[in-house]
Amino acid sequence: MATADASGPLARVREYPRATVAVVSVIGYAAVIGTFAGVFPIFPDLTRGQVNLLSHAIAVVNTVTTVTIALGWYWIRRGEVRRHAAAMGTSFGLILVFLVMYLLKVGGGPGEKRIVIESGMFLGAFAGTVEAVYLAMLAIHILLSVVSVPVVLYAITLAATHSVEELRTETPHRKIGRIAAGSWLVSLTLGVVTYVLLNWVYAYEFVEVSY
């Protein structure tokens, strides 16, 4: 966290943080939507086994990210700014790793995995209710993943272009950071929970999806 040089590359970002966040957010949304729509024929065809490996890797990355965000939150509450900054910077880097793997899985995968709950499985007698809860958690996870993007980017942008003192006195970084970290944590936690339910507690099937 440091003040950007008035003539350096971060000067424009510092001057127009919201515009910067808007541009980056649009690019990110376009990349994800374009991948789902199949307009980027740049991904290799993946087997179901490779998709599963990516799913496991993504879950590991998301779990580690959850821990680093929680640590960052804990450290800033104790006034340990450097540790907080390192934890949040690490979290942001891990999210970029997640994004690459996620786009690869979606763009090259043979279809979408859908949960299958049968009698004899855990709470199999309540399959309808369990599936509804699973889908609700998945929907909240996806929604928070989408809406938290500009909030997280805004918090990161402010942190990258201002000193610690400026963040405290001249920017809404503290408030924005709380919203970003909170929504990020809930989204990641629900993502990991739904991953466990889909891949380890219940069964799944691959379904071809046309967007």
Rank of each mutant, 00 (worst) to 15 (best):
A57G: 05
A57T: 07
I58A: 05
A59Q: 04
V60K: 06
V61Y: 01
N62Q: 10
V64C: 07
V64M: 09
T65A: 15
T65I: 03
V67A: 13
V67E: 04
I69V: 15
I69G: 02
L71E: 02
W73A: 13
W73L: 13
W73D: 11
W73S: 11
W75F: 14
W75T: 05
R77P: 04
R78V: 11
R78E: 15
G79C: 04
G79E: 04
E80Q: 11
R82A: 12
R83L: 15
H84C: 09
A86E: 01
A86L: 14
A87Y: 15
M88T: 09
M88R: 09
G89K: 05
T90D: 09
S91I: 12
G93T: 14
L99T: 14
V100L: 14
L103V: 12
L104I: 13
L104P: 12
L104M: 14
V106M: 10
V106I: 13
V106P: 01
V106T: 14
G109K: 01
G111Q: 09
E112N: 08
R114E: 07
V116N: 05
V116R: 10
F122C: 07
A125H: 10
F126C: 06
G128E: 05
T129C: 01
V130N: 02
A132L: 11
A132K: 11
Y134S: 01
L135D: 06
M137T: 00
M137I: 00
M137Q: 04
L138T: 01
L138D: 04
A139S: 13
H141W: 02
H141A: 09
I142D: 03
L143T: 10
S145L: 14
V146M: 11
V147L: 15
V147S: 04
V147N: 02
S148A: 13
S148Q: 14
S148T: 12
P150T: 11
L153R: 08
A155T: 14
I156D: 03
T157D: 10
